[in-house]
């Protein structure tokens, strides 16, 4: 087995698993019951889906300027995506949007917590 085929297979695995994570995240954003649960698949997609896909592309590029640009995109997404998710959650909380809870004890617990 030649070396290029070896790296190609690794990058294909990374790309395909990244695509799988992105689809699962999209499904979660569509199907989850309320806003605060939907934050979770959105955050997951932005970190692990983007990370895997960009890592696969980086292996395809090899040690060049292109790989450096990909690393820059990855670094930028790693910083901005949690910031944006946090900002959305904070804005929703400030607009008096509350999580949907199951049992009465959960609701009492949340009432004592949220101030």
């Amino acid at each position: 087995m030649s070396m290029t085929l070896f790296w190609d297979i690794i990058s294909w695995v990374l790309l395909l698993s990244g695509g799988l994570f992105v689809i699962i995240g999209g499904l979660g954003i569509l199907r989850f019951p309320d806003f605060f649960t939907r934050l979770h698949p959105a955050g997951m997609t932005d970190t692990i889906g983007a990370g895997l896909i960009l890592a696969g592309l980086m292996i395809q590029a090899g040690p060049t300027l292109v790989a450096a640009k990909l690393a820059l995109i990855l670094l930028f997404l790693f910083f901005t995506s949690p910031t944006a998710t946090h900002a959305i959650a904070k804005a929703a909380l400030r607009a008096n949007l509350r999580p949907v809870l199951d049992s009465q004890s959960d609701i009492n617990h949340a009432k004592t917590k949220v101030r």
């Binding site: 954003i29 806003f35 939907r38 932005d46 889906g49 983007a50 960009l54 990909l70 959305i88 929703a92």
Partner: peptide, 19 residues
């Protein structure tokens, strides 16, 4: 807020598609 979250996530996916 659901819409903003979805559009933000959509934007991240656009970045990946372009790359």
């Amino acid at each position: 807020y659901d819409r903003i979250l979805a559009v933000n996530s959509f934007g991240t996916k656009v970045v990946l598609v372009i790359a």
